[in-house]
């Protein structure tokens, strides 16, 4: 008997899964609204992806193929350990190929390949509240969302423009969902924000420590905050390319060689980078 036999399928007890499932359906019905839920204890610390793991465990079944990425990488410590844990308690198929995955759990990136209707992307979210930076009290931010009072976050963008001449938020760039709620799209780079808009797939966001689940259903309007005369801008990689696959249209990580002082760039999405190289070799 392996240790996994001591646990229910997908680790969580059925009551916990049911609550998370009810919450998930409600989150889909109210896009961008943070639905509170009873976040469960897991064998990893809160803040290490417990929200995403709970969503994955409540969704996964024998037919699923799971992919887990961390900052775009399939092989980082967080991604590998989450895959091992879910595999141990579900015996689910694991893949690094974005095309084959039915469930993709992600920390901080959306894959470069557009996802389709039979795929679900699950985000691990550290701070779900986009207004937290301007208002520390939960009861006040709830009221602000209820009244659609988003003046302070617009003011923050404006102050950033006045001080630095541009909006300096690099990740967690707030966006408006279906012209109602302002949402924190997890700490994905601004580069990925447009992928949320009118996507074919379902996006689910789980914040275990903050006990919130929210969602962006397929074909939903997601608009990054911007002023009429200062449009939203993504990171600009003009003149740079991946040193491995040569891609110029992807989100690039900057690497630095301490000995030579050389800077070079590499695709953040390792699966995509491998695919491009494999196709080039054929």
């Amino acid at each position: 008997m392996t240790q996994a036999d001591h646990y229910n399928y997908a680790f969580l007890d059925e009551g916990s899964k049911r609550e998370i499932r009810r919450t998930t359906l409600k989150a889909i019905a109210i896009p961008g609204y943070q639905v509170p839920f009873g976040s469960r204890e897991l064998p990893i610390g809160r803040g290490w992806g417990t929200g995403g793991i709970q969503l994955t465990l409540s969704l996964i079944g024998p037919e699923d193929t799971l992919k887990v990425i961390d900052q775009g990488s399939d092989e980082s410590v967080n991604a590998v350990n989450i895959k091992k844990f879910i595999r141990l308690t579900t015996n689910a198929d694991i893949t690094t190929d974005t095309h084959k995955a039915t469930l993709i759990q992600s920390r901080h990136r959306i894959p470069e390949i557009p996802l389709d209707e039979n795929q679900i992307l699950i985000f691990q979210v550290p701070i779900p509240e986009p207004l937290r930076i301007v208002e520390p009290r939960e009861e006040v931010t709830k009221k602000m969302h209820a009244e659609k009072d988003y003046a302070p976050i617009w003011l923050q963008l404006y102050e950033s423009l006045i001080r630095y001449g541009k909006v300096t938020i690099p990740t967690e760039y707030p966006c408006t969902v279906e012209n109602r709620y302002i949402m924190n799209p997890s700490p994905i780079p601004k580069f990925d924000n447009p992928k949320l808009h009118q996507a074919k797939c379902l996006y689910l966001f789980g914040a275990g420590r903050e006990k919130k689940i929210y969602a962006v259903p397929p074909y939903t309007d997601v608009v990054s905050l911007a002023f009429d005369d200062v449009p939203f801008e993504r990171e600009n990689f003009t003149g740079k390319c991946c040193r491995l696959c040569g891609s110029t249209n992807t989100y690039l990580d900057e690497m630095y060689d301490g000995e030579t002082g050389e800077r070079f760039y590499q695709c953040s999405d390792t699966s995509y980078c491998k695919e491009v190289r494999a196709n080039a070799n054929h």
């Binding site: 229910n8 399928y9 997908a10 059925e14 899964k17 049911r18 499932r21 998930t24 359906l25 889909i28 019905a29 409540s58 969704l59 996964i60 079944g61 024998p62 209707e117 379902l202 259903p217 397929p218």
Partner: peptide
Amino acid sequence: DEVFDTQSVFRKLLKAMSY
């Protein structure tokens, strides 16, 4: 089955709510 059939029904409800 309270584990696997509920999971299957949930995924279908999820699909129906999403689309």
